[in-house]
């Protein structure tokens, strides 16, 4: 059974018609990579999945729960879906440790000491030594900030992780350290939807690649199919531009 099902998803911002009927299913443990040109609606799709942006039409179904239905406790649901953003979005007034403990404490009501233990555990998991725990975001490099952001999302123990171009704002030499963390996570069986321009990652880690353009899924398939034998002319054009 699939963990996530997106049925006929439409999203408009006023007159701007961004998502024009997206259908997609994600199996437990699957890593789905979404590629596509700028403005194609990739970020909007991810924000619709955890209802940060309410869909104009369509259904988002997580484990049999329709998130678009009235009366759904979205705050509860969002704990099950982690998201990491291009701009890190660490809370700039809090240390790395506090960034992770704050949601644990106020959302999950985890006691302070336990929350700190969990935070240290996840900081280690993303390759950050304990000494970084007391650093403020502005004292960390982009790659370190992004890894704290990943740790913060993981600490909530989500079933599904969304990554929105998480390496795009990083210096080239910092990209690898973040991709490694994601690769490891995929190996451990985390269900992931990854929007990225890192084609190497898509090929090696992705179970399926989706090409999105103009608010629809133009083509999808196994990475080797999409990268070596794209069927749709728009996919071919996009790949020839970035490869």
């Amino acid at each position: 059974m699939s963990l996530l099902k997106i049925i006929n998803l439409h999203k408009r911002f006023g007159n701007l018609y961004v998502l024009r009927g997206v259908n997609m299913e994600v199996e437990k443990g699957e890593v789905v990579v979404i590629i596509g040109p700028s403005g194609g609606g990739k970020s909007t799709l991810l924000k619709c999945i955890n209802m940060l942006e309410p869909p104009t039409e369509g259904k988002i179904i997580l484990d049999d729960i329709d998130l678009t239905a009235k009366g759904v406790d979205l705050n509860k649901i969002r704990q099950r879906i982690g998201i990491v953003f291009q701009q890190f979005n660490l809370f700039s007034h809090l240390t790395a440790l506090e960034n992770i403990t704050l949601p644990l404490r106020i959302v999950k009501k985890v006691p302070k000491e336990e929350a700190e233990k969990i935070a240290i555990k996840y900081l280690k998991k993303v390759g950050l030594e304990e000494e970084f725990a007391s650093y403020y975001p502005h004292q960390l490099s982009g790659g370190q900030q992004q890894r704290v952001a990943i740790a913060r999302a993981l600490a909530m123990n989500p079933e599904l992780m969304l990554f929105d171009e998480v390496t795009s704002a990083l210096d080239p030499e910092r990209v690898k350290e973040v991709l490694n963390v994601m690769e490891e996570l995929a190996r451990e069986g985390m269900t992931m939807i990854v929007v990225t321009h890192e084609m190497g990652f898509a090929k090696e880690v992705g179970d399926r690649v989706i090409f999105m353009d103009g608010g629809v899924i133009v083509e999808e398939g196994k990475p080797e199919e999409i990268f070596t034998a794209p069927k749709h002319p728009r996919t071919r054009q996009f790949l020839s531009m970035i490869l």
Binding site: L52, Q79, I83, F91, V107, M156
Partner: peptide, 12 residues
Amino acid sequence: GQMDAARSLGMT
């Protein structure tokens, strides 16, 4: 993005 991050972690 701060509000997005906070809400995505389940905060009201």
